[in-house]
């Protein structure tokens, strides 16, 4: 089986889907000839031509609104937004139209489209290049939001997203785009949207994370290996609709819950998950369900970013705090 990074898994999945289905197309700024600023769409224009691997004019609302039209017109567009911080000109299209089209037309017009975007901090980038906006999109009815943390899931979730009859926001953890390789099968497969994955079984505490923070949590568990704390680690993979059952089952076993995310704290996904834990597993809890999140401040530029980024040490400390409550 070939070894792939998250980035190369995304690239080969786009290639596979475009090869199998002529209606799948890719569009974005610099996403054609150059293959995108991160090269996620590299080689697609050379293989499928300019009409199916489009270099768009510089306008996110045109990319997203255009993708909506393409989906209505019979295509399956996969739109790339260069950085999630730049999606905002397209926010009107996403919230006012993309998310609503099925409901608005009582199912006559559905939107099989994907909006891909690199997200997250920790890469010492300029302003608007480090945001984690999954909460904002998770809040909107009609959208699905997925975030892979491994090359295997990057492929499976992207395949599922392209085949999904509804619009899917596909967030790419750019901090770990090239961080590690994993065996990724050549044949087509899907990772179901809405299903979390238990990465490690444990009995003392359930920790939920996604994207690059899964890796940071694994590092935190290394730091704790002599502490005698048995962590059950869940990669949420889908932010919306998220997998309540897996979380419920786990917390009923461990009695403790920690969610870790880089998105801002207030009204973030952590609050939603904790609410589920409270409702579904209240009588099993041995400590207050807890969140470790980005502070409620604009994510700082690189020279202050370390105050914001969630380190393995902070995760380890928080795990200990919850277990010792």
């Amino acid at each position: 089986m070939p070894l792939k990074t998250i980035l190369s898994a995304i690239n080969s999945t786009l290639d596979q889907q475009m090869e199998k289905d002529d209606t799948v197309i890719s569009l974005g700024e610099d996403a054609g000839f150059e293959g995108g600023v991160f090269r996620a769409t590299k080689g697609l224009q050379q293989k499928y031509g300019k009409e199916r691997s489009i270099d768009t004019p510089l306008a996110e609302s045109a990319i997203i609104g255009g993708a909506l039209g393409m989906a209505v017109g019979g295509l399956k567009p996969v739109a790339e937004i260069q950085f999630s911080g730049f999606v905002l000109p397209g926010f009107n299209q996403i919230v006012a139209h993309v998310a609503r089209f099925r409901n608005r037309t009582r199912g006559t017009y559905t939107l099989p489209m994907v909006i891909r975007m690199p997200y997250g901090g920790g890469i010492r980038a300029l302003e608007h290049h480090s945001e984690s906006l999954e909460s904002i999109f998770g809040h909107i009815p009609g959208l699905k939001v997925v975030i892979p943390s491994t090359p295997y899931d990057a492929k499976g979730l992207l395949t599922a997203a392209i085949k999904d009859p509804d619009p899917v926001m596909y967030f790419e953890p750019k901090r770990i785009y090239r961080a590690f390789k994993q065996e990724v099968p050549d044949e087509e497969y899907s990772v179901p949207i809405g299903k979390a994955k238990v990465l490690k079984k444990g009995t003392d505490i359930t920790v939920v994370a996604w994207g690059s923070l899964v890796r940071e949590t694994v590092k935190a568990m290394e730091l704790l290996k002599d502490e005698g704390i048995s962590v059950e680690l869940i990669d949420l993979r889908t932010i919306k609709p998220f997998d309540k059952e897996t979380i419920e089952k786990s917390v009923k076993k461990t009695g403790r819950f920690l969610v870790v995310h880089e998105a801002y704290k207030t009204f973030g996904p952590g609050a939603e998950l904790i609410s589920t834990v409270n409702v579904k597993a209240f009588l099993y809890l041995e400590a207050p369900p807890t969140r470790l999140t980005g502070h409620d401040i604009t994510i700082p530029l690189p020279k202050g970013e370390h105050h914001f980024i969630i380190s393995p040490e902070r995760i380890a400390k928080k795990i200990k705090d919850v277990v010792k409550f």
Partner: peptide
């Protein structure tokens, strides 16, 4: 080298 912690909070 770095921005102080208070700095990243103070101007919100």
């Amino acid at each position: 080298k770095f921005v102080d912690l208070e700095e990243v909070f103070n101007y919100t």
